[in-house]
Amino acid sequence: MKTMTSLRTLALGGVLIASCAAAFAGDKPNVVILATGGTIAGAGASVANSATYQAAKVPVDKLIASVPELVNVADVRGEQVFQVASESLTNENLLALAKRVAALSRQADVDGIVITHGTDTLEETAYFLNLVVHTNKPVVVVGSMRPGTAMSADGTLNLYNAVSVAASKDAAGKGVLVTMNDEIHTGRDVSKAVNIKTEAFKSPWGPLGMIVEGKNYWFRNPAKRHTNQSEFDIDKIEKLAPVEIAYGNGNATPTAYRAFAGTGVKAIIHAGTGNGSVSNAVVPTLQELRGKGIQIIRSSRVVGGGFVLRNAEQPDDKYDWVVSHDLNPQKARILASVALTKTQDSKELQRVFMEY
């Protein structure tokens, strides 16, 4: 009889423990990881291969399984959205990803979203999501500089940090974030500045904060409009405006600009030297193309802090050109592609570049 009673007590105790564990698990934030490929899902031939490898090989379930400590941070589930190297992501990919992020952000059972991404165009995707997804929930884009097979792999800690940030209430309302190398950056500012080191991502105005052993330390907030503050809404965008980038240099000719104009672009980003300078040989062509309705947007090819002042170097008011403010050429392309879905007016376009 005592044995039966003991068994019954143990059974009831087991149910109680299981119930408590379930309740505790239910208190954890729910984070969805959307996988798109990239180095973080890459594999090399040996542990010595940190720069030579195949990107976009590891599926999302294996990525999650590679960081068992995630169960201590959040209830995590994954979706494989794409499996591509990020240099091959298209506008259509961006739209599909943003629509999925927006849909998930409206679900009551989702507290945060992480996007694993190749580093080559990670900054462009992060900025695009920052412009068009209306949510206050944390959205974090993360990648790695080395594949998971390398002895010096950085992807597992980067992913752990990304989930920690996405699960944190103090990350809400800060727009789309990027976590790399223990730092938290705004998707608006951050860029890939080095292509071989783990500390590859930099923001010209500094990171927003850092992550140390799963805890966030914040130093500043984003100043530009983003997410819920944005006038752009992914649910109302079905196609991005075609925009191309032409690279300025000391021996520049009009060839690239004319070629892009022939493809039907709505805008050309001029990646100029210094303060978005334009070669004398190119100015007449840009004036001509603006007269045909193509927006001319001056940006700077300067790494880590190019800042283009209006009517400096070129008479922008006279030529009806736009300046990109502090956005680099690739981010200027993203913003123009979005903004031109709403307006063709150069003054409105300039306002957008100053506010976002």
Rank of each mutant, 00 (worst) to 15 (best):
T5H: 03
L7P: 00
A21W: 15
V31D: 13
T36K: 10
A41C: 12
G42E: 11
A43C: 02
V47C: 01
S50I: 14
T52K: 12
K57A: 02
P59S: 11
V76S: 04
G78E: 01
E79I: 11
S86W: 14
E87H: 15
T90I: 12
E92L: 13
L94I: 08
K99M: 04
L104A: 01
L104K: 09
A108P: 07
A108L: 08
D109C: 01
V110Q: 13
I113E: 11
V114S: 02
V114F: 11
D120S: 10
T121P: 07
T121M: 02
T121V: 05
E124K: 09
A126I: 00
A126W: 12
F128G: 00
L129F: 10
H134K: 12
T135H: 10
V141K: 06
S152P: 09
A167Q: 05
T179D: 05
E183C: 08
E183Y: 11
D189E: 15
D189S: 10
K192D: 03
V194A: 05
N195S: 12
K197P: 08
K202R: 11
W205C: 01
V212A: 03
F219Y: 15
P222S: 01
F232R: 02
E238M: 04
E244D: 08
Y247G: 00
T253W: 13
R258Y: 13
G264N: 10
T273H: 04
R290F: 13
I296K: 02
R301S: 06
F307S: 04
V308Q: 07
R310F: 04
A312C: 07
Q314D: 06
D316P: 13
V322M: 08
I334V: 15
A336D: 02
K342W: 13
K342C: 05
Q344I: 03
D345Q: 03
L349G: 13
L349V: 08
Q350G: 06
